[in-house]
Design a binder for these strands. Structure first.
Lengths: 215, 215, 215, 215
DNA sequence: GATGAATGAGTGTTCATTCAT
DNA sequence: AATGAATGAACACTCATTCAT
C-alpha cells in the first residue's frame, strides 16, 4: 500500500487515484450493492486512504453516481452501431440482440448496478448528468434497422421501437441477472459454452421471427 | 404500544405475529434490499418488539430465507397450469408469457428479492428447502405445451424448454425490474396502460412467432 | 464497567442509566463544550455502552438539550423565593444578588452551558419545552421585592425589572464565567475566600445603592 | 480560485494573506468556538489554501492564540483613557461603564473568545506573550478615577479597584454574552434601541450610585 | 510563499443481536 | 410468547495535519 501511494502522491497523479477509486468502487458495488458496499473496502481496493475517497467523491452516494455513470458509459460504448448497416436489417437486428446479451455477460457490473438503482427508483439517475441520452446508441440502432427493414418490406409494419428495445434487452438481461438462481433451479452452470450457444441461437431467432413480415 | 398489540393479537396467536413479521419483512426487503433492510423497521412494520423478530426467525439471514421462500411460493402459485390446456399450444403459450409478465407486475417483491439473491450468488437458496422444485410449475407447463405443439405440428422442432423458459421470463422480468431506469430514459411512465398493452401484444407475438413452424 | 452494567441491566433500571448518562453529559459538556464533548467520554463517564446514550437521547443534540434543561432546572431550584419576604425589600434584594452569585459559583455547569448555548444563538432552546417560564422564579422575586420597595417608599420609582434582573445576574455571572482569564490577569485566585467576600460585599452594596431612593 | 487569489494579493504581500487568515479565524472562532471551528472554513473565509494557514500559524492552537491576542488588542484599544479626565470622577466612571458595554456590543468576538478561553481554564493565555498587561488600560483608568474621586471626597472610601473592574465589566458582559438566551426568555430582541437605552441608563446609575459617598 | 492531494486517527451514529424480565 | 434495555462492532464521514510540488 505504502509504496503505491508514494508513487501516486509523488507523481501528483490525482486523476490516476480517482480512476483507481472508481474502479474499486464499481467492483465493490457490483459484489455488495449500494447498502452492502463498504467505503473502507473501496479504499483498500484502490490502495488509498479512506479519506481520499471522500476527498474526491464527497460521499458514498457521490461515488455511487460516478459508478452509475461509468456503467452507462459501458452501455454506450458496447454498441457497435457502425458494423450493423452492412449486415442488412434482419441479420443486423440479430447481431444487435446477441451483442447486447454479450455485453451484459462481459460486464456484470451493468446488470448489478442497474438492479440496485431500480431498487432506489432511479433516484440517483436524476442527479447524474446526461443519462437519458446514454440509452440512445442502441435505441437509435434499432430505429435505423427498423426503418430499413420496413423500407425493404422485410419487417412487419407495426413494430414499436421502444418495446422492441426492451424486449431485446430483456432477453439478454434476465439470463445474466438471474444467473445464480437459475443455475440453482436447473442444477447446472448457465454459463457453460453449449448452454450459452443454445440460448444465443434462440434469442436471435426469436427477435428475427417476430420482426419478419408474416406475408 | 404494548397494550394495543396485546389487544390486536392476544397471547394465543403467535402464528399471526409471525405472519405479520414475514409480511413486513418482505415489504422492507423489497424496498431496501438485504443489506439496506433494518430489523427495527421490520419490527415496527409488524407492530411487534424487535426481539420477537429474532425469537421467530433467529437472525436477519433467517428472515431473508423465509422471505425468499415466500416469494418462490408466489411464483408457484402464479402459474395457473390448469386453464392452459384448453387454449391449445399456441394460445396457451402466449397466455403463459402474459401471465408471467403480469405476475412480475403484481408482485414487485419477486423481482426485488430475486435480484438481491443473485447478488449473493444464490447462497441462501441452498439453505432453503425445496427451492429447485419450485420452478417446476411454469417449466412443466412449458414442457407440456411444447410437447403438444410438436405433436400437432404447430411448433418448430428444435425448441429448448429451458431456454424458452428463460426467454419467456426475461421478456416480462426486465420490463418490471428496470421500470425506473427505463422510465427515466424514455421520460414517461412505463406502467401507463397503453404502454403496457403495446408491450403485452409484442411479448405474446414474439413468443408465438418464434415457436410457430416456419413451414 | 462490566459489574455496574450487570447490576443496571439486572435491575432493569432504565431511569438510573438515563440519569447517569445525563450527569456524565453535563460534566463533559461543562468541561469541553458542545463541539468538544465526545459521546464516547459521556458513555464512559456513565459506565454504559456508547450505543445506550443514543438509545436514550437519540443524538448529541438531544443529549445537549437534555443537559440544557437540567441546567435550567438548577437555575429554577436555586432561587429560594420563600425566605426573601421576611428580609424586607432592601435586604431581600441584596440576598437575591448574593444567592445568584453563589448559585453560579456552586454550579459552573450553568455558566458553561449557557455560554455555549449563546454561541449557537439559543437554537436548541426552542426545541426544549418550557424554557421561558424557567426564568420566572428569580424574575418574579425581583418584581415582588420591587413592588414592596416602592410601596414602602424605599426604592427609586423608575426601576425596570428586566434590566435589574440582567444587571443582578451579570454581576455574579461575569465573575464566574471569566474566572480563569481574570485570575491570569490579576495574577491570583479569584476564588480565594477573602476576594470572594470583598466582591460579595460590593455586589450587594451596588444593587442596594442603586435601588435606594435618592430623596 | 488560484488565479484570482494571485491577482488579489500578488506574491509579494504575505502579510496581507496572514491578516486575511487571522480575520477569517476570528470570525470562525466567534461563530463556532475553538473545537467547532474548522481550519478548512478559515482557509475558505480567507480565500487561501488550507496549507497556507498552517504555514503561517503552525496549528489550530497557534491560530487560536493569535486570535486571542487580537481580541485582547481590541480590548486595549477600546479604552479611551484620554477623554475621561475631563469629565471628572463621577461622569468619567459612568462613561467608562458605558464604553465597556458598547465595546462588548461592537465586538462579539471579545465575548465569544473569552468565554471559550475560560472553558479551557485560560490555558492558552500563558502561551501568549504579554496578556496580563493588556488588562491595564481599563484597570488603570479605574484606579485613576477612584483616586481622584476619593481626593475630591465624592466617592465612598472603601472601593476595591479590582472588584469594581469586574463589576463594571460584568454589567456589560452578561448582557452581550447571554443575548440569545435572554432574548428567548424575555421573548424580544434585547438589542432593540429602546431596551439598550434603558439598560445603559441603569448601568451608569448603578455604578455611580455605588461609588457616591453616602454622606 | 502557496497549493491541494493525501493521510489517519478519530467522531457521531447505526444496527444486528443478546438477555433479563 | 413477548418486551425493550443494553451491547459492541461496524459504519460513513470529518478534520487537523503533512508533504511533494
Amino acid at each position: 500500500m505504502t509504496q503505491r501511494q508514494r508513487r501516486i502522491r509523488g507523481t501528483r497523479d490525482a486523476e490516476a487515484a480517482k480512476a483507481a477509486i472508481l474502479a474499486a468502487a464499481v467492483r465493490e458495488f457490483t459484489e455488495k450493492g449500494l447498502a452492502g458496499a463498504r467505503m473502507e473496502a473501496v479504499a483498500q481496493g484502490a490502495e488509498v486512504a479512506k479519506g481520499l475517497v471522500f476527498h474526491h467523491f464527497g460521499s458514498k452516494e457521490g461515488l455511487w453516481v460516478a459508478a452509475l455513470e461509468h456503467v452507462y458509459g459501458l452501455l454506450r460504448a458496447g454498441q457497435d452501431a457502425a458494423g450493423l448497416a452492412a449486415l442488412g436489417p434482419v441479420e443486423g437486428m440479430r447481431r444487435l440482440a446477441l451483442d447486447t446479451f454479450r455485453l451484459f455477460r462481459a460486464h456484470p457490473e451493468i446488470v448489478a448496478l442497474m438492479n440496485e438503482e431500480n431498487l432506489h427508483r432511479a433516484r440517483h439517475l436524476r442527479d447524474a448528468e446526461g443519462i437519458p441520452r446514454l440509452y440512445n446508441p442502441l435505441f437509435d440502432a434499432i430505429e435505423g434497422l427498423l426503418r430499413e427493414g420496413h423500407a425493404q418490406g422485410l419487417f412487419r409494419p407495426d413494430v414499436d421501437a421502444t418495446a422492441l428495445y426492451i424486449a431485446l434487452s430483456g432477453l439478454g438481461y434476465f439470463y445474466c441477472a438471474n444467473r445464480w438462481t437459475l443455475s440453482a433451479a436447473f442444477a447446472g452452470d448457465l454459463f457453460a459454452p453449449d448452454r450459452l450457444a443454445r440460448y444465443e441461437a434462440m434469442l436471435g431467432e426469436m427477435v428475427v421471427a417476430y420482426l419478419r413480415h408474416p406475408g
